[in-house]
Design a protein around this nucleic acid. Structure first.
Lengths: 168, 168
DNA sequence: TATAATGAAGGTCAAAGAACGTCAAGGCAA
DNA sequence: TTGCCTTGACGTTCTTTGACCTTCATTATA
């Protein structure tokens, strides 16, 4: 178990625990320097270890002042894991709605938050042909759930991504 | 927040907030001197952060006695009309996110609600080819806005403590 | 009085720099 | 020999700067 990826993972986890925080902001190149490895190695660790299924969210920003932010998701229950698993597959409007109902009952989201997501995954709103529609819906629900589970994800305002967006 | 652009943005926003004003008049060269940077850096910040989509208007005048005036637009007036107009045509991720920034600042949605919608309209989440992606995004934002605005009318202040309102 | 010169703003744009991401190819271990 | 690791070349995004341009008010000049 002496491989680098595991060491880097352990190091990052230790930062979470020693600091007792739910959010970490590091620089990829710093970690790479610390472990004397290629920066892309850090990306690899983030991609394989710090996944939503394992309870983490990763957000990064390029350019000067760039960084990598790792957020630890709130409580991990079996149902949440199942739901994240479910959002990996196409979902009908009814299925998606029932997940939202559940989250609402569990206090994981407010009624209004549920309404927002519900409106956005509505078939009329999506207005896409059917094989793809359910796939897009599941991705949307997943994205929403990740934010809900993150507790407080800072992603906008002065800290958020900014600038021209030719790609849309 | 290691980069200059973010610092300058934060500084300008703080001027708005500490003064509790909707209009600011500064000199580009003064800001540049204060931050010990090139004046064009200030122009860059204005161009990327203080955009109409984010609810700001910038007017400037050259020559002796020149200045830069930043106006913070209030949401209530033309906001709904503009937003619905905007959501009638394709929207890039940056444009959409900027509208969300604005709504949050104006108290039309909470930070978490903004994050949810932002995550759902992300290009990675949508994962659709480009001509259509921006169209779907605009429908999604529109759907979300309609819920947000309806909620505003119903209960007045949406800007509650983030994530602590499971009944709301 | 008109006009020209001057200096004081801010604007534009392209290039360089600073991060992070992607991907394919090779390495290594069970 | 299959499936992770690891690396490095190359790509994208965002920032920062500096050289050069335009606009405006003021002052000097014909």
């Amino acid at each position: 178990m002496a491989n680098l990826a595991d060491q880097i993972e352990a190091y990052l986890v230790s930062l979470f625990e020693s600091g007792d925080v739910y959010e970490l902001e590091v620089q990829r190149v710093e970690i790479a320097r610390f472990f004397a490895c290629a920066p892309s190695q850090v990306t690899y660790v983030l991609a394989t270890r710090f996944t939503p299924e394992r309870g983490y969210l990763v957000y990064s920003r390029r350019g000067g002042g760039g960084f990598v932010r790792i957020t630890r998701l709130a409580a991990q229950t079996q149902f949440l894991a199942d739901m994240l698993e479910a959002t990996g597959h196409p979902l009908t409007q009814t299925q998606a709605a029932s997940y939202l109902d559940w989250m609402r009952r569990e206090g994981l989201c407010s009624a209004r938050e549920g309404d927002i997501v519900r409106a956005m995954i509505d078939r009329e709103t999506l207005s896409l042909p059917l094989p793809g529609r359910d796939q897009v819906r599941s991705r949307l629900l997943r994205a929403a759930c990740l934010v809900l589970l993150a507790g407080t994800v800072r992603n906008g305002g002065p800290e958020g991504p900014v600038g021209s967006d030719p790609e849309g």
